[in-house]
Design a protein around this nucleic acid. Structure first.
Lengths: 202, 202
DNA sequence: ATTTGACTTTTGCTTTTAAAAATTCAGATT
DNA sequence: AATCTGAATTTTTAAAAGCAAAAGTCAAAT
């Protein structure tokens, strides 16, 4: 049972997350979220100014979760190759788990509130930062040659995210991709990463 | 002045190409094409069964032009790096020139006639074939290590096409990308290619 | 400071429908 | 017979109207 305001806010966030992850933004109503919690609809508006902000908060929450997860997993690893594999795997794991929240939002990038849009940009920058620090450690330990880290991490991220998009374009009829498709893309991303990293070796 | 049927067919194709490249499929009417040529609308239907087929014929024509252009340019080059750069440059040149016909069609991949869809698949395979033969020559001359050519060329193509898509997603409001955007993507693709190829060196 | 039920405003569908565009065809022309 | 056309027909598209559902507001209660 929530005791104070902050806890209640969090409860709303979690319930909304479940709904959004399963049905997406458009197919989730504020009334449904309220009903799940046995709150009044108006209460949701007491804690969040509007639906968009609630969605943005959920998205932010998910992205923080991903970042923390990746950062924690990277602690125990040193080589660039292993690190990148972990990043790719974690990312795909989250994409699978929160498909509607993550990819669908990215795909709908056009006609998105500027708030959400900024969040996606931040997320991209964040991912790039993670990649960059991985490469940076590689350079520092002499594993990789000295390169423009900012540029290289951007290029790497574009390549791997891009591969994903090429395949998404292919998904004709069905809407939610199959597990096999996720796996196939991940396999390609890993292969690409291996070649890419080899190409950066000192 | 067209003298026979084949010439007239070609005239139609060229006029349609101009219209489609400039205004896209949806904003080009059969009546307009006919008017450009001072033909009757019905005559277009004598040479092409329907609008879709005409569009498909135009797309095919453009893709053949691209392939021939690339193949010819590759004749004089031997190194893998130079070859890939040529492929990337030519491809971007065509994307710029026939923006609506090429990218727009790819972007609209969903809800496309199966005829057009097949054409895009063929085009993709074709591009992959070109890349593969470049890599193959590299392997044969001992420049590159021995790899699964089919797989590697697919991965390379996905990466470079994907980078393009990531950026296209970014294009918020405006519809036709600026020259600078094309150039920026091309620069990234080249950089990625350089690292990728280095990663494949024997 | 929280919470809600009742109320107002927006948004997102159908349905309607008129115009535009695609497509067909009977017959003319070469 | 192969080409070609004007006119007619069918299909799409796009704007307008109506309506139900969902978003969002607010005065009053706890």
């Amino acid at each position: 049972m929530p005791k104070n305001a902050d806890e209640k806010r969090l409860k709303i966030l979690e319930t909304a997350k479940r709904r959004f992850a399963h049905y997406g933004m458009a197919k989730t109503t504020m009334a449904e979220i309220a009903k799940d919690l046995s709150f009044s609809k108006a209460l949701l508006y007491y804690y969040f100014p509007d639906k968009n902000s609630l969605y943005a908060a959920v998205l932010e929450h998910v992205m923080e979760e991903l970042e923390e997860d990746i950062t924690a997993s990277l602690k125990s690893v040193t080589s660039v190759s292993e690190s990148i594999i972990i990043v790719l795997e974690k990312r795909m794991e989250f994409v699978k788990k929160y498909y509607y929240i993550l990819e669908y939002t990215v795909l709908m990038r056009k006609d998105l509130s500027s708030e959400l849009d900024q969040l996606l940009i931040d997320s991209f920058e964040n991912q790039k930062g993670i990649i960059r620090s991985v490469f940076q450690r590689g350079v520092e330990r002499g594993e990789l040659m000295d390169v423009d880290l900012e540029e290289i991490s951007k290029i790497f991220l574009f390549s791997s995210m891009g591969m994903r998009l090429v395949v998404v374009k292919d998904l004709k009829s069905s809407f939610i991709p199959e597990k096999e498709e996720f796996d196939a893309i991940l396999a390609m991303q890993k292969k690409m990463a291996a070649i890419f990293i080899r190409g950066l070796k000192a």
